[in-house]
Write a protein that binds this DNA or RNA. Structure first.
Length: 176
DNA sequence: CCAGTGATCAGG
DNA sequence: CTGATCACTGGA
């Protein structure tokens, strides 16, 4: 299978979030072992207008990477414990990203970061050229559901109510 | 229900 | 510098 290319990541976050379902995430760990995971749950964060998106605060040291061309990794630490793994999408100066919420049988953004041993060194990592993390193509999935994004009640009606969470049906049944 | 845990950002 | 907040999880 081939790596997803720049064109794929340059699409808007909502499109990429949906299309990432079923794609294969590869991680080569420091000890040399390689693991492959299927992406099963994602969430889109789109632009400075999106009050739920970190870029709604404008361009800061933390959000800077979201302003770059799609295909980079955006990571941040939440609650002092969990590294959230995001894929930057869109084109330059259009800040947006897709949060990876579930891979294979690991459901939950915090657990994903833990499983993949993500840390600050992944900030800005290039999915097109990295030798320790990338995503490979797979057929588009159509059997998925959408839902409201989690943990963003502060965002206000307009953005809180966007069904920008995408869940592979199959995995939903497997969960719990 | 709620505590843990620390980077980040706005405000002095 | 300070302090509030946080795209979460796991254990009462």
């Amino acid at each position: 299978m081939n790596r997803l290319n720049a064109h794929f990541y340059q699409q808007d976050a909502v499109t990429v979030a949906e299309k990432l379902l079923g794609k294969i995430l590869i991680r080569v760990f420091d000890d040399g072992t390689t693991k492959r995971y299927r992406i099963t749950e994602t969430e889109a964060y789109l632009g400075e207008e999106d009050k739920a998106c970190h870029a709604s605060k404008g361009r800061t040291a933390r959000t800077d990477i979201m302003y770059s061309d799609g295909g980079k990794i955006y990571v941040y630490l939440i609650y002092g414990m969990y590294w959230m793994l995001n894929v930057v999408t869109g084109t330059e100066n259009h800040p947006q990203a897709v949060l990876i919420r579930g891979i294979s049988r690991i459901i939950g953004s915090g657990k994903v970061g833990r499983e993949l041993k993500i840390d600050k060194s992944f900030y800005g990592e290039d999915l097109l050229s990295s030798d320790r993390i990338w995503i490979e193509d797979a057929p588009d999935e159509s059997d998925f559901s959408t839902a409201l994004r989690i943990g963003i009640d502060y965002a206000g009606e307009e953005w809180r109510d966007k069904a920008w969470r995408f869940i592979l049906k199959q995995e939903q049944n497997q969960a719990k």
